[in-house]
Amino acid sequence: MIFVAALFATAQPAEADDPIVLDPGLGCPGFALQLQGTGGNLQTKDFYDKNGNKVRTITAGKGVLLTYTNLSTGKSITFDTSGSVSKTTYNADGTYTVRASGHNGLVLFPSDVPAGPTTTQYTGTIVYTIDPTTGVFTLVSSSGQAVDVCAALA
């Protein structure tokens, strides 16, 4: 399980059990969104070229129980993210390309491409780029099933 937004890249929060709260208009239009993952066991491995430059990161493992909550109404939706693999490539121009498969949540902010706020839970594959200078995420492609979390919680 990986959930991402322009504030945090392809990693879980510092403590997976600690909730993340996104103000109205960031994760979903019109209400504050809480994301909380419990359990899981993800492992990360970094790969370096002969000069010591990081060129790729792979994160894989058993996912978490991921709960999204509309903080205005208290309505929640939970996904058992039974596993995922995320491969991040560090591009020569300084951007990152992430290919995530399995169960992954993707939060796009108004500054991202396409512009959010949107929160989508995917089962399948998503590919997106991250510009660490601007913080902009760009969704390149998605395949498989997608659940519009904001619509489900509205």
Rank of each mutant, 00 (worst) to 15 (best):
G144I: 14
S84F: 14
V55K: 13
I77E: 04
G116N: 06
V149I: 05
A32D: 10
D93F: 11
N53H: 12
L65G: 12
C150W: 00
E15H: 08
V64S: 10
Y96P: 05
V55Q: 11
M1D: 13
T44F: 08
G63A: 09
S76E: 03
L106P: 09
T67E: 08
L108F: 01
V136I: 15
F79A: 01
G83Y: 05
Y48A: 02
K87T: 15
A14G: 12
V85S: 10
A152L: 07
T129Q: 02
G39F: 06
I130H: 12
R56H: 04
A9T: 03
P114M: 05
F8H: 07
Y122C: 01
L106I: 14
D80Q: 06
K54F: 08
F79S: 08
T81Y: 05
T133D: 00
K45R: 02
S101M: 03
G124T: 15
I2M: 09
A154N: 13
K87D: 15
F109E: 04
D46E: 14
F109V: 04
V113R: 05
I77H: 00
H103W: 01
A11G: 06
Q12N: 09
A151K: 01
A100M: 08
Y122Q: 02
V136R: 03
F109P: 02
V127W: 13
T129C: 02
Y96C: 06
V140H: 00
I20A: 01
N53M: 07
D23Y: 13
K50R: 02
S142Y: 12
A146D: 01
G30Y: 06
Y90A: 13
F109Q: 04
T59W: 09
V85N: 09
P29Q: 14
F3W: 13
T97A: 09
V107K: 03
C28N: 00
G102L: 08
P19H: 11
T10H: 14
G94P: 01
D23W: 13
Y68N: 07
G30K: 00
V98P: 08
T78Q: 09
T97F: 12
T38M: 00
F8W: 09
N104F: 09
G105W: 02
K54C: 00
Q121Y: 01
A6Y: 14
C150Y: 01
T69G: 02
T138K: 01
Q43C: 07
K87Q: 07
L7S: 11
V4P: 07
D93A: 14
L22Y: 11
P114H: 12
S82N: 13
T119D: 03
D18C: 10
A9F: 02
Y90E: 11
S86N: 14
S72Y: 03
G124E: 14
A146R: 01
L66D: 09
Q121H: 05
G39C: 05
S82W: 13
G74V: 02
V21T: 08
S142A: 15
T57G: 03
L153F: 13
A92T: 11
G135Q: 07
G135P: 12
S101G: 04
T138R: 07
I2P: 11
